[in-house]
Write a protein that binds this DNA or RNA. Sequence first.
DNA 1: ATTATGTGTGGAATCGATTCCATAATATAG
DNA 2: CTATATTATGGAATCGATTCCACACATAAT
Lengths: 328, 328
Amino acid sequence: MATIKEIAEMASVSRTTVSRVLNNSGYVSAEARKRVEKVIEETGYEPSIYAKSLRTKRTSVIGVILPTIKTETPSRIVTGLGSELAKHGYQILLANTNLDKEKEYEYLDLLKTRQVDGIVLLATNTDPKLIQKIKEINVPVVIVGQEAKGIMHVTYDDYHAARELTAFLIQKGHTQIAFIGVHEEDRAVGFLRKRGFLDEMTANGLNVELEWIQEGIFDIDSGKESMGKILKQSVNTPTATIAVTDRLAIGAMSYLKDKDIVIPDRMALVGFGASEISQYLEPALTTVDFQNEKAGEQAANQLLAKLNAQTYQEKIILDYRLLIRQSV
Amino acid sequence: MATIKEIAEMASVSRTTVSRVLNNSGYVSAEARKRVEKVIEETGYEPSIYAKSLRTKRTSVIGVILPTIKTETPSRIVTGLGSELAKHGYQILLANTNLDKEKEYEYLDLLKTRQVDGIVLLATNTDPKLIQKIKEINVPVVIVGQEAKGIMHVTYDDYHAARELTAFLIQKGHTQIAFIGVHEEDRAVGFLRKRGFLDEMTANGLNVELEWIQEGIFDIDSGKESMGKILKQSVNTPTATIAVTDRLAIGAMSYLKDKDIVIPDRMALVGFGASEISQYLEPALTTVDFQNEKAGEQAANQLLAKLNAQTYQEKIILDYRLLIRQSV
DNA sequence: ATTATGTGTGGAATCGATTCCATAATATAG
DNA sequence: CTATATTATGGAATCGATTCCACACATAAT
């Protein structure tokens, strides 16, 4: 691999001039430029990005911290991020925590050490400690999926999506509605979606029995189990169930099918996330599309804007769409 | 951020000695080491990896080129890769082609420019041109999922898995078996799985009608469509269908349900890939588990072994397991 | 004719590490 | 008591770029 010095010699100019051609900066005569370009072309020379980064302190690498890459939401966000970043010559350095919260801290440090230009954090929580850490490392960070005071973020409108979904069920005549949620530590999915549901029920003067509210974790089996609990404990069985993710809904659906409870006749069912499979289920699942790719793109754009000292928004709340299908 | 020079001054030693402490190399007295370590501890000093890479030509970054991150197989492989690489202090630089074949070439170049220590390629084809390019760039590459002469690779035993799956259907009494495949350019999924199916049929003296063999692309709708074609065209309708991916099988299942064709009674159905959803389908899908995480781990380990000049295997073929469920 | 401005170029310092080499002090062998 | 390892340390070159600064020359303005 050639170096800038060799290119300079071959083109009979100084390293400085080669650098000017490379970066389109300063004054270079047409002839000198031509000679340098010719040599670069012929040798297939590529400047060492490590030497470059050492001087410029910029790496064109964005770190992405995510809880898992195996589920649809993060992988879609990463797809959106990747395509937008690639357009601007940035690469993604991946940091997968595998749901280990401690690793979030570790990776923030690691990515700083790796001197990434910015970090995208697909957060599952928004601990003050985490926020603190983010501010400490002094690297531009954008959080996707959770609101965070004082830190750039791109979120979904979880609260209103939940309200609207609930309103839709009520409008369809349901008055007894169950809810399968997740831990409220996850403010977006756990807290806000539940809040939206409860507020809408209250606004309509509807009561929610305690046993109708279950809390699971982020997997299919958990949805199955929760549905079981809802149906077992209730004196008044609900006629509809809201699950905060499609996977939980799929679990619930699996339970209902096992018990020959027909959807939507005896139990309506809705989810969140618009997973690919949701439309192929039997019956097709009513769900909320949060357009994760777009979230990734927006996060990328805001981060890049900040890096280039352009105007950016501290806070972006994305739109959602209800996908009404046969499960209601 | 402190530099090695400042650390050296603070510990009253030379940069050389600090470097020795950092890398555990050469002779350092106990006292000197202690002083240096203390200063490092106090300042939270982290050596610049760019300066380091510039000298050592090593980056501890592995590039991963993949066709998409949205589907289960690649995201599982990446999970396996990531966890194994992280153990050894390596990071993943992601390059998502979004199924654009041209980008595979581009990214090979880009990753070389980025001076990654090695590349993992989740290949969908094995063009001589691609192989040529890989050899050209002169960076250690391991291909996952496809066999490739002269290049390190980790593959599944697609051929025997397909034969065994076919044999299982035959053993269950099926003699008329349809097949939903993909383009043979994808040698592993398109060619080998089909070959395995056909060979096993022939070995059992069974005939396969031309219309029973359909070719789709990698999505659910395509499976649905293919199932439609199989059932529309046939005089002799098959009693079982093999789809080369679970998503194709899910599409086929969707079609069958629409037409009230009961699985497995009137049509048995099997897939490949052991997708998470497969066990929650109704009926649960019989499929082949290729243990993608393990493939990722193995790929990582072989690559690391090569990088560290340890013994490695040029070629690894992984085991598979038949997951027999209610769809047969 | 003199000064100011614009254009073009290269020398040399710099970024922050690693590593070769020289040197010195101490320990061990002959 | 010399000769030879062994241990410990630092100076200086190096990796491959960018960028400040000085300088030369041509042209335009005064």
